[in-house]
Write a protein that binds this DNA or RNA. Structure first.
Length: 190
DNA sequence: CTCTGGATCCACT
DNA sequence: GTGGATCCAGAGC
Protein backbone atom coordinates (compact mmCIF):
# COMPACT_ATOMS: atom_id res chain seq x y z
CA UNK A 1 0.00 0.00 0.00
CA UNK A 2 1.27 3.47 -0.87
CA UNK A 3 0.17 7.02 -0.31
CA UNK A 4 -0.23 6.83 3.42
CA UNK A 5 1.52 10.15 3.89
CA UNK A 6 -0.70 13.27 3.89
CA UNK A 7 -0.20 15.86 1.20
CA UNK A 8 -1.44 19.42 0.79
CA UNK A 9 -1.92 21.02 -2.60
CA UNK A 10 -4.34 23.95 -2.56
CA UNK A 11 -6.90 23.72 -5.33
CA UNK A 12 -6.92 26.48 -7.96
CA UNK A 13 -9.26 29.42 -7.41
CA UNK A 14 -12.57 28.73 -9.09
CA UNK A 15 -12.05 24.96 -8.93
CA UNK A 16 -15.45 24.34 -7.37
CA UNK A 17 -17.32 26.95 -9.38
CA UNK A 18 -17.67 24.53 -12.28
CA UNK A 19 -19.90 21.77 -13.58
CA UNK A 20 -20.38 19.17 -10.83
CA UNK A 21 -19.56 16.32 -13.22
CA UNK A 22 -16.15 17.85 -13.96
CA UNK A 23 -15.49 18.55 -10.28
CA UNK A 24 -16.57 15.03 -9.29
CA UNK A 25 -14.03 13.53 -11.70
CA UNK A 26 -11.29 15.94 -10.61
CA UNK A 27 -11.84 15.23 -6.90
CA UNK A 28 -10.95 11.55 -7.22
CA UNK A 29 -7.44 11.36 -5.81
CA UNK A 30 -7.84 14.57 -3.80
CA UNK A 31 -7.62 14.59 -0.01
CA UNK A 32 -10.01 15.84 2.65
CA UNK A 33 -8.93 17.05 6.09
CA UNK A 34 -11.53 17.38 8.84
CA UNK A 35 -10.52 18.23 12.41
CA UNK A 36 -7.54 15.94 12.77
CA UNK A 37 -8.50 13.10 10.45
CA UNK A 38 -7.96 12.81 6.72
CA UNK A 39 -8.51 10.59 3.74
CA UNK A 40 -7.97 10.31 0.02
CA UNK A 41 -11.17 10.66 -1.98
CA UNK A 42 -11.65 7.48 -4.01
CA UNK A 43 -15.34 7.74 -4.98
CA UNK A 44 -17.68 10.65 -5.84
CA UNK A 45 -21.00 11.34 -7.51
CA UNK A 46 -22.20 14.46 -9.33
CA UNK A 47 -25.64 16.00 -8.84
CA UNK A 48 -26.88 18.87 -11.00
CA UNK A 49 -29.97 20.98 -11.08
CA UNK A 50 -31.07 19.61 -14.45
CA UNK A 51 -30.94 16.13 -12.91
CA UNK A 52 -34.08 14.43 -11.63
CA UNK A 53 -32.08 12.55 -8.99
CA UNK A 54 -30.78 15.76 -7.40
CA UNK A 55 -32.19 17.42 -4.31
CA UNK A 56 -31.91 20.70 -6.24
CA UNK A 57 -34.03 19.50 -9.17
CA UNK A 58 -37.14 21.41 -8.10
CA UNK A 59 -35.31 24.57 -7.10
CA UNK A 60 -34.16 25.95 -3.74
CA UNK A 61 -35.80 24.69 -0.53
CA UNK A 62 -34.79 24.81 3.11
CA UNK A 63 -32.98 21.47 2.98
CA UNK A 64 -31.01 22.09 -0.20
CA UNK A 65 -30.23 25.78 0.42
CA UNK A 66 -26.49 25.12 0.67
CA UNK A 67 -26.51 23.76 -2.90
CA UNK A 68 -27.43 27.25 -4.05
CA UNK A 69 -24.86 28.95 -1.81
CA UNK A 70 -21.18 29.63 -2.42
CA UNK A 71 -19.10 27.05 -4.26
CA UNK A 72 -16.56 25.20 -2.15
CA UNK A 73 -18.85 24.89 0.89
CA UNK A 74 -20.29 21.74 2.43
CA UNK A 75 -23.84 20.56 1.83
CA UNK A 76 -24.76 18.12 4.60
CA UNK A 77 -28.11 16.35 4.70
CA UNK A 78 -29.65 13.50 6.67
CA UNK A 79 -30.43 10.33 4.79
CA UNK A 80 -32.98 7.71 5.76
CA UNK A 81 -33.51 9.52 9.04
CA UNK A 82 -30.18 8.22 10.35
CA UNK A 83 -27.11 8.92 8.29
CA UNK A 84 -25.45 12.15 7.24
CA UNK A 85 -24.10 12.63 3.74
CA UNK A 86 -21.36 15.13 2.83
CA UNK A 87 -21.29 17.04 -0.45
CA UNK A 88 -19.15 19.84 -1.84
CA UNK A 89 -21.08 22.65 -3.52
CA UNK A 90 -20.07 23.45 -7.11
CA UNK A 91 -21.83 25.79 -9.56
CA UNK A 92 -25.29 26.99 -8.48
CA UNK A 93 -27.60 24.09 -7.70
CA UNK A 94 -24.84 21.52 -8.21
CA UNK A 95 -22.83 19.44 -5.76
CA UNK A 96 -20.50 16.46 -5.52
CA UNK A 97 -21.37 13.70 -3.04
CA UNK A 98 -18.28 12.24 -1.34
CA UNK A 99 -18.91 8.48 -1.26
CA UNK A 100 -15.69 6.84 -0.12
CA UNK A 101 -12.22 7.60 1.25
CA UNK A 102 -8.98 5.78 1.70
CA UNK A 103 -8.14 6.64 5.32
CA UNK A 104 -4.86 8.56 5.63
CA UNK A 105 -4.46 10.03 9.13
CA UNK A 106 -6.47 9.66 12.32
CA UNK A 107 -7.37 6.05 11.59
CA UNK A 108 -7.59 5.33 15.31
CA UNK A 109 -10.19 8.07 15.79
CA UNK A 110 -12.16 6.93 12.77
CA UNK A 111 -12.06 3.33 13.94
CA UNK A 112 -13.43 4.39 17.31
CA UNK A 113 -16.22 6.42 15.73
CA UNK A 114 -17.10 3.51 13.49
CA UNK A 115 -17.32 0.82 16.19
CA UNK A 116 -14.06 -0.92 15.32
CA UNK A 117 -15.06 -1.49 11.72
CA UNK A 118 -12.20 -2.85 9.56
CA UNK A 119 -10.09 -0.33 7.66
CA UNK A 120 -11.62 -1.17 4.29
CA UNK A 121 -15.10 -0.25 5.51
CA UNK A 122 -14.24 2.79 7.62
CA UNK A 123 -15.17 5.30 4.92
CA UNK A 124 -16.73 3.03 2.27
CA UNK A 125 -20.10 4.75 1.74
CA UNK A 126 -21.43 8.28 2.22
CA UNK A 127 -22.89 7.63 5.67
CA UNK A 128 -19.81 5.77 6.86
CA UNK A 129 -17.52 8.49 5.51
CA UNK A 130 -19.46 11.21 7.34
CA UNK A 131 -19.43 9.24 10.58
CA UNK A 132 -15.68 8.56 10.34
CA UNK A 133 -14.95 12.24 9.69
CA UNK A 134 -17.20 13.32 12.55
CA UNK A 135 -19.42 15.40 10.27
CA UNK A 136 -22.44 17.00 11.99
CA UNK A 137 -25.46 18.92 10.67
CA UNK A 138 -23.64 22.05 11.87
CA UNK A 139 -21.12 21.55 9.07
CA UNK A 140 -23.77 22.42 6.48
CA UNK A 141 -22.64 25.57 4.60
CA UNK A 142 -19.11 25.34 6.10
CA UNK A 143 -16.45 26.44 3.58
CA UNK A 144 -13.53 24.12 2.95
CA UNK A 145 -11.05 26.91 3.56
CA UNK A 146 -9.42 26.11 6.91
CA UNK A 147 -6.58 23.79 7.81
CA UNK A 148 -9.01 21.74 9.90
CA UNK A 149 -11.71 21.68 7.20
CA UNK A 150 -9.97 21.50 3.88
CA UNK A 151 -9.84 19.90 0.46
CA UNK A 152 -6.43 19.38 -1.12
CA UNK A 153 -5.59 18.60 -4.71
CA UNK A 154 -4.26 15.17 -5.65
CA UNK A 155 -0.58 14.36 -5.37
CA UNK A 156 -0.82 12.22 -8.46
CA UNK A 157 -3.43 11.50 -11.14
CA UNK A 158 -5.17 8.19 -10.52
CA UNK A 159 -6.84 6.00 -13.13
CA UNK A 160 -10.54 6.89 -13.07
CA UNK A 161 -13.48 4.58 -13.63
CA UNK A 162 -17.09 5.72 -14.00
CA UNK A 163 -20.57 4.27 -13.89
CA UNK A 164 -24.17 4.79 -12.76
CA UNK A 165 -24.87 6.42 -9.42
CA UNK A 166 -25.88 4.31 -6.43
CA UNK A 167 -29.18 4.27 -4.57
CA UNK A 168 -31.19 6.52 -6.88
CA UNK A 169 -34.32 5.73 -8.83
CA UNK A 170 -34.34 8.57 -11.37
CA UNK A 171 -31.81 9.57 -14.04
CA UNK A 172 -30.19 6.16 -13.68
CA UNK A 173 -28.86 6.37 -17.24
CA UNK A 174 -26.26 9.00 -16.28
CA UNK A 175 -22.76 7.69 -15.53
CA UNK A 176 -22.00 10.34 -12.94
CA UNK A 177 -20.30 8.14 -10.36
CA UNK A 178 -16.50 8.32 -10.43
CA UNK A 179 -13.93 6.17 -8.68
CA UNK A 180 -10.26 5.45 -8.37
CA UNK A 181 -9.65 2.28 -10.36
CA UNK A 182 -8.92 -0.80 -8.28
CA UNK A 183 -9.15 1.02 -4.96
CA UNK A 184 -10.01 -1.39 -2.14
CA UNK A 185 -11.83 1.42 -0.33
CA UNK A 186 -14.79 1.85 -2.71
CA UNK A 187 -18.33 1.55 -1.35
CA UNK A 188 -19.03 -0.93 -4.16
CA UNK A 189 -17.18 -2.15 -7.22
CA UNK A 190 -17.84 -0.44 -10.55
C1' DC B 1 -52.81 18.57 7.57
C1' DT B 2 -51.34 13.62 6.18
C1' DC B 3 -48.65 10.52 3.42
C1' DT B 4 -44.63 8.74 1.10
C1' DG B 5 -40.13 7.54 0.15
C1' DG B 6 -35.50 8.08 0.28
C1' DA B 7 -27.96 10.30 -2.72
C1' DT B 8 -27.96 4.26 3.79
C1' DC B 9 -26.12 0.90 6.90
C1' DC B 10 -26.14 -3.22 9.54
C1' DA B 11 -27.59 -7.62 11.41
C1' DC B 12 -29.41 -11.64 10.19
C1' DT B 13 -30.73 -15.73 7.15
C1' DG C 1 -30.25 -11.62 -0.23
C1' DT C 2 -33.63 -9.47 2.91
C1' DG C 3 -35.64 -6.39 6.24
C1' DG C 4 -35.54 -3.10 10.08
C1' DA C 5 -34.10 1.26 12.04
C1' DT C 6 -35.83 6.04 12.07
C1' DC C 7 -37.36 10.78 10.49
C1' DC C 8 -38.23 14.64 8.00
C1' DA C 9 -38.55 17.19 3.50
C1' DG C 10 -41.47 17.53 -0.13
C1' DA C 11 -45.72 16.82 -2.34
C1' DG C 12 -50.51 16.76 -2.47
C1' DC C 13 -54.96 17.57 -0.63
Amino acid sequence: MTGNVPFVAPLPKGFFRRDAVTVARDLVGAAIYVRGVSGRIVETEAYRQDDAASHSFRGPTRRNAAMFGPAGCAYVYRSYGLHLCLNVVCAAGEAVLLRALEPLTGQDIMTQRRSQMPLRQLCAGPGRLSQALGITPGDNFRPFDRTDFFLSGADHTPDIVQGPRIGISRATELDWRFGQAESPYLSRPF
